[in-house]
Structure formats: structure tokens, C-alpha cells
Amino acid sequence: MNAMQEKLFLELRQTKKEIESSLNKQQKQTWLTSILKAELVDINAAIQKFEEGKFGQCEISGEFIPEDLLKMIPTMRSIKDTEDLENYYKKPLSTAFL
């Protein structure tokens, strides 16, 4: 595990604790509950990938996802997810890392 991956791993573990704490404190389901639960599923999947030595690999093709994208979204699962980012990011991704 390189330094960038180690930092992401620690951030994911901390975020997991924070989300779990928030979910445990909630007395009733809100619109935020489903979002937090979905994020927790993604975080757990990313942590499992770290533990299996597969973090950063596309779940579809096995190719490595660019580190710059993983720094922004460490829970990214596939290269296809980068295509979905185009819908939300206003600038072309090719200019995001200049």
C-alpha cells in the first residue's frame, strides 16, 4: 500500500465510524438515512478491496482506476463510473487534472 492509498484507507475508516455513529444516533428514518446507508455500503466495499489488495481496480475490467479520481472519490468501483461523473461535473474530466 502506497502513502496515498494508506491515507485514503484511514479516511475511509474514519468516515465509516462517523456514518455509523450518525446512524446509531438517529431516532427515526429520514431522507438522509438512505443516503448514509448507501454510502456506508460503498465505504465497506472499498475497505474490503483494500484488505484484499484490489483497491483501485475496476470491478468490471480489472484495469486500474486513475489515482487522481480515487483521491476525489475513493469509493469508485469501475471505470464506467467515470462516465457517470460527466453528468455531474461541469468541466470535461480531461481538464480536471491540469
Rank of each mutant, 00 (worst) to 15 (best):
S21W: 02
E51M: 13
Q26G: 05
L70D: 04
S61K: 09
F9Q: 11
Y88F: 14
L85S: 02
F64C: 02
N2V: 05
K25E: 14
W31D: 15
K71S: 09
S34A: 09
E67Y: 02
L12M: 10
R13G: 00
C58Y: 03
I65D: 02
A45D: 14
K90R: 07
K80N: 11
G56I: 02
M4Q: 13
L23K: 08
N44P: 08
I43M: 07
E18C: 00
L23Q: 11
Q57Y: 13
E63Q: 15
E83K: 13
P74Y: 02
F9P: 01
M1V: 04
T15V: 01
L69I: 14
S78E: 00
L69R: 01
R13K: 12
F55D: 03
K25P: 00
E59L: 13
S61C: 14
Y89Q: 06
L70S: 04
D42T: 04
Y89F: 14
E11M: 08
I43Y: 07
G62H: 07
I19C: 06
M76G: 02
Q14I: 00
E52T: 12
E11G: 06
P74R: 02
L36A: 11
E11W: 01
K49D: 10
K28Y: 13
Y89T: 08
T30E: 07
F9C: 03
G53Q: 08
Q14R: 12
P92V: 01
T33H: 09
L36E: 12
V41S: 11
N2T: 12
D84T: 11
E59N: 13
M1H: 08
M4V: 11
A96W: 14
T33A: 10
I65Q: 02
G62V: 09
Q29K: 14
M4R: 08
W31S: 15
L10I: 03
A45S: 11
N2F: 04
K16T: 10
A38R: 12
L12I: 07
L70R: 03
A45F: 08
N2L: 04
E20C: 06
K28P: 00
A38S: 15
Q48E: 15
K16R: 15
S22R: 12
S22G: 13
F97L: 05
E39V: 07
S94Q: 11
